[in-house]
Design a protein around this nucleic acid. Structure first.
Lengths: 186, 186
DNA sequence: TTCGCCATGTAAGATGTTACATGATTAG
DNA sequence: CTAATCATGTAACATCTTACATGGCGAA
């Protein structure tokens, strides 16, 4: 299981509460790993029991108090161990591909809207990624010291997300053309 | 949950046993949906109880007897209903991306091998897809009647798999270049 | 004779999802 | 006044993974 490890990476990048982690999993990290707050709270408890993270109660004036988690040495070691272990390529679940093959036994034309909707979602996400890239990794004014490994690697992952969304948009164009060829409309 | 629906599509394409379904989930369908035989047997039982599929006992001489499943009308309707329902884009789990971001807190150079290994797996899968494409959708000698919807849609999904693998190979090149930049070797 | 394939399953445990629950603050 | 955001959790249920179990056939 890698949710623990995703949380470790996120907490190493910046300590935070379960709620904040859930936010991050909706945003940057969520692009390649999803988790709900219920999962995160449960796993954080286990990680605390295992000594992978430490908690600090933080009182806040206007907002509810929170528990700020940070990575403990044991957590760092666990992450290091995992990083050195080979992992298998992740299992895929593409509902849309199932639908596309299923359309052969239904009305292919009825799928056009759904495919277009998904393409729209991918376009939105691409725009979002590109905006984030401009914001966080925008045009650098010139040579500026030693490269920051964390920054560079985050950028590399983001470029992966961008490449993925572009690929999906192009492929869904291909799928739409196929659907239209099968059921030519007026 | 869409495992039921993936099974329905597969059984509509061709009836078969739980074991055969498990094989297909390792091969063609497995490229966009994974499932183990344990899952498949369990779900097949439920689908049978729900009247989505019907079983037929098939005695075999040299091999163990098997149960051949086929889609019942209720199953076809269930699939149709699902096809017309909008679905959310699937949640992603990219262990490798977690590792790449995690490498910032470890030795980035140590990740090179793992990334290269994954790239190799993607190259293998690409080669496999391309071979399947040549075999099943190879150069057609000319115009040959009306298009077969099932065939065309299967090909479209396969093209998606090919595009995905190409994208991954290219992106991992990018990641490798980034890793090398961060820890320049001799 | 040992290994892999065919073929079906059970059981335990880990993970993930969905619904419910609470309660304060801030913006409209 | 209403809805959204911050913040933490419990409980029930569904699903997925891993290990175990059985047994015959054919190939090396």
């Amino acid at each position: 299981m890698a949710l623990e490890h995703a949380i470790l990476v996120s907490l190493l990048e910046k300590p935070g509460s379960g709620y904040e982690l859930a936010r991050r999993f909706e945003r940057s990290i969520g692009y390649f790993w999803t988790a709900t707050h219920q999962q995160i709270y449960r796993v954080l408890k286990r990680m605390e029991a295992d000594g992978w993270v430490v908690v600090r109660d933080v009182a806040q004036k206007t907002r509810p108090d929170k528990k700020e988690y940070a990575v403990a040495p044991a957590g760092r070691e666990a992450l290091s161990r995992w990083l050195h272990d080979p992992i298998e390529p992740e299992s895929v679940r593409h509902d849309l591909a199932v639908k596309i093959r299923g359309a052969a036994f239904d009305d292919p034309a009825a799928l056009v809207r759904e495919v277009e909707r998904h393409q729209g979602l991918h376009r939105d996400r691409l725009a979002h990624y590109l905006a984030g890239e401009r914001r966080d990794f925008g045009p650098e004014p010139g040579a500026c010291g030693p490269p920051d490994a964390g920054r560079e690697l985050q950028h590399a992952v983001l470029r992966g997300g961008i490449a993925y969304e572009r690929m999906m948009i192009d492929w869904l164009d291909d799928v739409l053309a196929t659907l239209h060829r099968l059921a030519p409309g007026p």
